[in-house]
Each structure stands twice: as structure tokens, then as C-alpha cells.
Design a protein around this nucleic acid. Sequence first.
DNA 1: AATGAATGAGATTTCATTCAT
DNA 2: AATGAATGAAATCTCATTCAT
Lengths: 209, 209, 209, 209
Amino acid sequence: MSSNKSRPNRQRSALEPQRRRGKDRVAALMEAAAGVIAERGFESATMAEIAARAGAQIGSLYRFFPNKEALADALIYRYGEIVREAFEKIEARASALSVHDLADALLNVLFELHGESQTMVALLEARSEWSVKRNEFRRAAVQYIARILTLRAPHLRPDTVEDVAVVLLHTMKTLKALTIQQGVAINTGAPAELREMTRLYLASKFGEK
Amino acid sequence: MSSNKSRPNRQRSALEPQRRRGKDRVAALMEAAAGVIAERGFESATMAEIAARAGAQIGSLYRFFPNKEALADALIYRYGEIVREAFEKIEARASALSVHDLADALLNVLFELHGESQTMVALLEARSEWSVKRNEFRRAAVQYIARILTLRAPHLRPDTVEDVAVVLLHTMKTLKALTIQQGVAINTGAPAELREMTRLYLASKFGEK
Amino acid sequence: MSSNKSRPNRQRSALEPQRRRGKDRVAALMEAAAGVIAERGFESATMAEIAARAGAQIGSLYRFFPNKEALADALIYRYGEIVREAFEKIEARASALSVHDLADALLNVLFELHGESQTMVALLEARSEWSVKRNEFRRAAVQYIARILTLRAPHLRPDTVEDVAVVLLHTMKTLKALTIQQGVAINTGAPAELREMTRLYLASKFGEK
Amino acid sequence: MSSNKSRPNRQRSALEPQRRRGKDRVAALMEAAAGVIAERGFESATMAEIAARAGAQIGSLYRFFPNKEALADALIYRYGEIVREAFEKIEARASALSVHDLADALLNVLFELHGESQTMVALLEARSEWSVKRNEFRRAAVQYIARILTLRAPHLRPDTVEDVAVVLLHTMKTLKALTIQQGVAINTGAPAELREMTRLYLASKFGEK
DNA sequence: AATGAATGAGATTTCATTCAT
DNA sequence: AATGAATGAAATCTCATTCAT
């Protein structure tokens, strides 16, 4: 059927893996996508650059991801899983944590997605009308935070909890944005201030000093 | 005919209209641009749609704004002026304000740019490496906030003041983002929570109850 | 979607086609480009017409040549190679040639690039500040001529040789221009006169009668 | 009829001539056009830049020159007149000149159009199918040179004279091109060589030593 | 006469996506 | 599966020219 006639294997190194496993390829593509999107934003990231950075061909990229949206969704999903795990860890010890530590733990969820969180932010910033997945992620994150808050402070009204969760999610995003902050001088003081603000707020909400 | 890419209009900034007609046109173009950018984000807004919405020809748009960047800069500048005025009003009565009122006043600066603030956010979110103007705006805003804080709480250390200002600016943006919140249910509780968080934080910084 | 002017393809040079199909296409595109540029001049030649004449889609043209400059460079390079070969043939038998034959051989280098030399001239005439490649070509040609002259007349001072080479290169271009001569009556006498002038000059330089 | 309502004369300096004489304006426009065309070539020169450089408005430019071609024609005509005068001066003393001096005199005709000759070259290089005037200029120049040659060497056959004239005209252009030569190092030797070549050639044609 | 705004066709370029091999 | 060529709509931008005031 498919002959190799038109692509003779001259200079094909014996050791070069000719057919990377699909999984590796997908991983490489997603990593490349994350990098490009983080650098340029979702809109400006091009499928061609993503493929190139992954050492793949554009056709290969489209084999695994039928379009750009799907790629974004896959990334969101992957990060979503990581984030979910982080939330679950916090949830497990929620009731044991001091306000201070809980605030920090939450803030660190996004923060510790080191390289990738920039991608997350870029993805979440992109015009969202197009994608359902992005909103789902937001909603899920809010739910997780709300659940954790409820565990720690069961007396809070459900309505309030959700509002607080929304605020906290934004604060998490802000922390990330603060540390990325385009260009030069990385502001070391501001993140500390943001952490303090969050602690104060949580403490107040929990009715603790 | 022949276009000349070696002598692009990249550097020229927005042209000042001389006549009544031009002034009207520029106003219409900027309003249209604000609308389209708010709706679609900066990257996805097209010059053609902007011109069309302003009832202008594409050439007319380019007469006054030599490129998309220049249009963005003009918008930033315009909103920058509005914001500056708002800050100056706050500055004038800074020492007389309660912490509560100061926090609200600051949060309202961006918030009250009603229609336009969505544009602002879109513009500020756009990949910033490209534009100097956008960063200038950020810096100026931080300076204004820092000055106001110093007036109200002269005992704060200059370093700290700047960090606090950075945090507050982000909070202002967040408030706006919360109220826009793509799509459906406008979250009424969350903004109130955010305001409360800001007040608590400021009060703590000021050493007041 | 969104175009990104901050990351233009300006620097990338022509893409090497990998497959049979691409090679044919590139050949067709270059031929079409040569034709259109020869007819209209570089500035007035449009990418659309070039693509159409090659039976290609505009996107196909841009796949291989990221911009108009790159196309020009590729053409210059191709003709440069042909010219280089011609010079090398002359070089090989330089010391054996009579003044008369050497003059003719040099004049024929450009002259015999039959169809294409018109393109060359158009390309070389285009404002040169834009392109490095074009100047490189000029410089290389001068070096070749100078080397040939030195082989044949080793007693000439290196400075002088280069100046003579510059004059000869212009004469070569002039011969071509004379035979193209826009529009009507092809002047048969003038080229002969130009050849005679060149011979006289070379003979004088070589100190031969 | 025409009131100044919309353009009040605030800050209009009393000494600033408000309405330049048409002649001055035309002169300024032509000078500006010459400059821009010399720098960028005819195709790439834009009417807007020409007007701007003349301190005029685009509408003003079009009042005097109905289109770009007309502007080119006017320039050609103007330089044509200058060239004509130069030729006539040479003609007047043609029979008294040595071959050496005649060659130099002819070469200097274009050469001494100091600033403007670059414009001439640009204009003459532009695709000519569009313009009749440009060819006329060429033809006229050839006629002048031919007449001068005939005066000095009446024994030359008319056919030959015209061919020689064509060659000489190209040599004149070449001399100019050599001295402009884009970029840095002005080749001082090459022009001298070109002059020598021309003298040798003329001397030979005239049957003189 | 002068000014500057308006026009709009057309130029270059980009890029997501599809297709043939 | 993989490769890389093809597609073509759409985006940005240019500019000669016309027009209203």
C-alpha cells in the first residue's frame, strides 16, 4: 500500500527513533503549545510555531488535535487535573490548617504550576465565548475552593462561601500575574502584600483573629 | 501599486484631526474601536470591523491611526486621562477620607469607567511586550495610588507603599473583571467581598481599626 | 484571525522544498517571478500576479518565500550562481585569451543570461538600501572580474584592477540595457560600438596594441 | 463667498507669507519631488511624502500636477532644459575642442546636474511604457550628442554617429551612477577610469590619436 | 487657492485547516 | 502515522486620487 518510494531513507540514522510513540509526541506537542501560548497569548500563538517547537510537522499536530480549540481544551484539562489534585490535598487537611496556612496553600495552587501557570493565565484570559471548557474549569475551581472553605468554616453561609471562593480564585490568578509581570523588575514585595491581604481577609471571614 | 515595507508608518502616532469633520470621525472611530475591542479582545478585533462600525472607510481609519497599535495607544491615553482625573479627585481629599471610603474610592476609579473599562481590561491584558504605552499606563497608575496612600498614611515606608499600590491596582482590575464576567449570571456578592477584603487590608496597613 | 506584526517572517529566507511537488512549484514560482519582474520592474510586480502566473495560490508562494524580498534574493542568488559559473569558465582560460576575446567574453556573461538578464537588471536597479543580497552580488561580480583581469595582466596595480572591474561591470549592464531597450527599434549598431569601446579600453589597460 | 470661519487666524504670524506665489510653490513641490524620487525611486516615492517635504498639502500638489506621471514629466522637462543648454554650450565650441575635452564635457553634462541627476537616473530607470516624455528625453539627448559629434567629426557616417551617441549617453548615466553608488565608500578611481575609456573610444572614432 | 478629509481598490502577509503521498 | 505541500479567506496596511469646505 504505502510505499516509501518518494521518501528514500538516505541518511536516516539507525538510532534515531523513527516513530515516536504517540504519547510522547502528544506530550511534546502539549508542552510546546504551553510554551508558545504562555509567550504570545492564545490568539497570537500559531499552530505552525507550536508544531515547530515540538519538532513536529503541522500535519502531525492536527492528527492529535483537530483544531486550536481542542489543543486549548487539552491543556486546560491537563492543568485542571493538576489543580484538582492540589485542591484535594488541601481539602484532606483543610480542617487542620491555620488560616495563615490555608491562605498560603490556596495561593500556592496556581503559583506552583511553575512554568505552566502562565499558559493557564493566557488561556483563561482569552475571549471565552468560544470555549465551554474554560468556563468549566473556572466553575470547578470555584467549587473546590468553596468546598474547602466550608470544611474549614462550616458556619459560613453557602452563598457567601461561593462569593469568597470567587474572590480567592481571582487572588490566585493575581498572585501569578504579579510574579510574571512583563519585563524587568520582579516585584518581590507585592506578592507578600497580596498574601497578607488574603490572610487578613480569610481570618476575618472565619471570624478568627 | 507598490507598497513600501521598508518605510512603515509604525512609528507615527495618531494624527490629530484639524477640522470639525475629522474630529467627529476620530471620536467615532475611537468609540467603535473601544466597542469592538471590548467585545472581542484586542487581537481579535479587526480594523475593518472597527471602521465599519464607525461608518468609515478603512482608509479613513488609517488616516488617523497609522496602525492598530496606535489605535490602542490612543485609547489607553484617553482612558489614562480619565483615570488620572479620578485619581486627582481622590488625592485632593485623601487625608479627609476614612479607610472605608478611600478603599471604595480607589476601587471605583476603574469600575466607573462604565462602558469603557472593559476595553481597558482587554487592552491591558493584551500581550504587552509590544506596547510601551500600556506599561506606562500601569506605572502611572501605581504612582498615583502610591501618592494617595502616602498622603493618607505618611508613616508608611516608600517601598511598602509601592507594593501596596501594585496590589490595589490589581484589585481594581479584578473588581472590573468580576462585574463583567463573561456570559451569564452577574455575581453580585463577589464584588462586595472584594471590597471588603480591600478595606480590611487598607485598614491593617494604615494601622487603623 | 489575528496577525502578529511583531513577529514577522522578515528574516526567514526562502524555504527549501522537500518534495518533488514543492521543487516543481518553487521552480515555477521563480520563473513566474522572473517574468513578472522583468516586465514590470520589482516594485510594480505583485505577489498575486506572480502566484497566478505560476498557477499557484498566494499562500503557496508565501510558503516558500516569506516575503517579496526573499523572492528577490532567491532570484539574485540563482542568477548569481549562473554568473559565477560563467566567470569561472573565463577565469580558467583567462591567460590564453586575446584582449578582444576577453572583452567579449566578459560582456557576454550578463548578455547571455538571455531571458533572465532583464530580471537581473530590474532587480539590480531596485532601490538597493533594502537588500543586502543585491549588494553582495555586485561585490562578488567585481571580485570575479578583478581576479580575471589580474590573471591576464598581472602587472596591473590591485587598486586599478578593482576600478577597472567596476567600470566593466557597468559596461556589462549597459550592454544588456542596450539590447533590451524598452519598446521599439532594437539598436543593432550600439551594442557593437559598446563592445568596441570595451576592447579599446582593455587593450589600453593591458598595455597592448 | 468663502469665509474663514472654520479656520480662524489665531496665531497667524504677520510676517509669514500666507499665500506663496504659485511659482514658488511649484518650485518647492518639484524640488521636493526630485528629492524623494532620488531617495526612493519613482515607484516608491509617494505623493504624500512629496507634498509633506514641500510643506504643502496633498491637495495643493494635485492642483499643480494632476497626477504622478505629470510630476515626473515636469521634472524630466525641467532637467531636459538644463541638459539642452549644456549640450548647446558644448555644441557652440564643439569644433574647437580636443577629443579629451569633448569627452569630458559630455560626461559632465549629467554629472554636473549635481543633486538632481540622481532623480534623473531614477526617472529614466522607471518602467517606461507609461511615459512618452521619458523616451522623448532619451531621444532628444541622443540627437544632441549626435549633432555635436557630427560637428566635430563630419566624416563619420550618420548611422554610426547615432550608435556612438547612444553609447555615450549610457556612459554619462554610468558615470553618474558610479558617483552616487549606494552607501559608503565613494569609488574615486572608477570614474576616472570611465572617463579614460570614453576618451580612448572617442579618439579612436575620430581617427585621432 | 488651499486644506485636509474621504475613498476604495489593491497590495502584502498570515494562518487555521485540509489533502495527497 | 507522518510529512509537507496546498488552500484561500481574511487581516493589516498603502496610496493615488477626488471632494467638500
